[in-house]
Design a protein around this nucleic acid. Structure first.
Lengths: 118, 118
DNA sequence: TGAATAGTTAGGCAAATGCTTAACCAAGAC
DNA sequence: GTCTTGGTTAAGCATTTGCCTAACTATTCA
């Protein structure tokens, strides 16, 4: 449970930075080297590597090195986990809202004159 | 465009903290006052208010005050936006993977003996 | 071999985060 | 009125972030 929590922490934290989202965006269109990822961001290579390390420990990106080039790949299963967490909360709340709506519709005629600002 | 970016920054940043996710989790099950949100977290009321301010500016939570009680509500449309961002990247990458799969299947017989570790 | 390229590590620094306590205001209960 | 409850503001502090430059290693090219 705590592990799950830490995993989500890392994942959402990784997504909470515009540069890192740019990297993910780029990687969603295909694999790239570290230098290629750094270029459009206008930051140094070390800075890019730090972002990359975060993306890797969060599970969002995987990398492999062949020769002197490190190639970065998106791992969508981690993305799915983040998506799922959000979706569950949203769905839960919406179903609650639906239930409330039905309740209000049922008891509508009696309360409508009591609070006209609604 | 930059606005969109800043909005996503705030949203994912809001989601990147276990305490704030707990608050959202709680709110997905129903509305709550500030004190009610603070209790299970084991942090002070001011700390809770700071989290709440973040959740509000990120659009994830809305609050209203009646009397001396502030009631907090989940706003799922913001959640949907975060979900959508993730989904787009995931879908894009997966479709790319599918296309690659087809390509590999087509040229499979020729390359299979070249790299047995695959 | 030597030069260029791709990446990596170390150290440092300004800003942002997440918390705290102390003091304060406002609404309801007595 | 005054006590209690719920919330709010201000100030301060340790830690974490996100970046940088400088120095280094490893691979490829000539």
């Amino acid at each position: 449970m705590l592990n799950q929590d830490a995993q989500l922490d890392r994942m959402f934290h990784a997504l909470a930075d515009a540069n890192r989202r740019s990297m993910i965006d780029r990687l969603s269109r295909g694999e790239h080297s570290v230098t290629e990822l750094a270029e459009p961001l206008g930051i140094s290579l070390p800075a890019t590597l730090q972002h990359l390390a975060l993306l890797e420990t969060s599970g969002l990106v995987r990398t492999r090195k062949s020769g002197r080039i490190r190639t970065c790949t998106l791992d969508t299963s981690a993305l799915s986990r983040a998506e799922e967490w959000i979706n569950q909360r949203r769905a839960f709340w919406n179903s609650r809202l639906d239930a409330l709506g039905e309740f209000l519709a049922a008891s509508n005629s009696e309360d409508s004159k009591k609070d006209p600002s609604a």
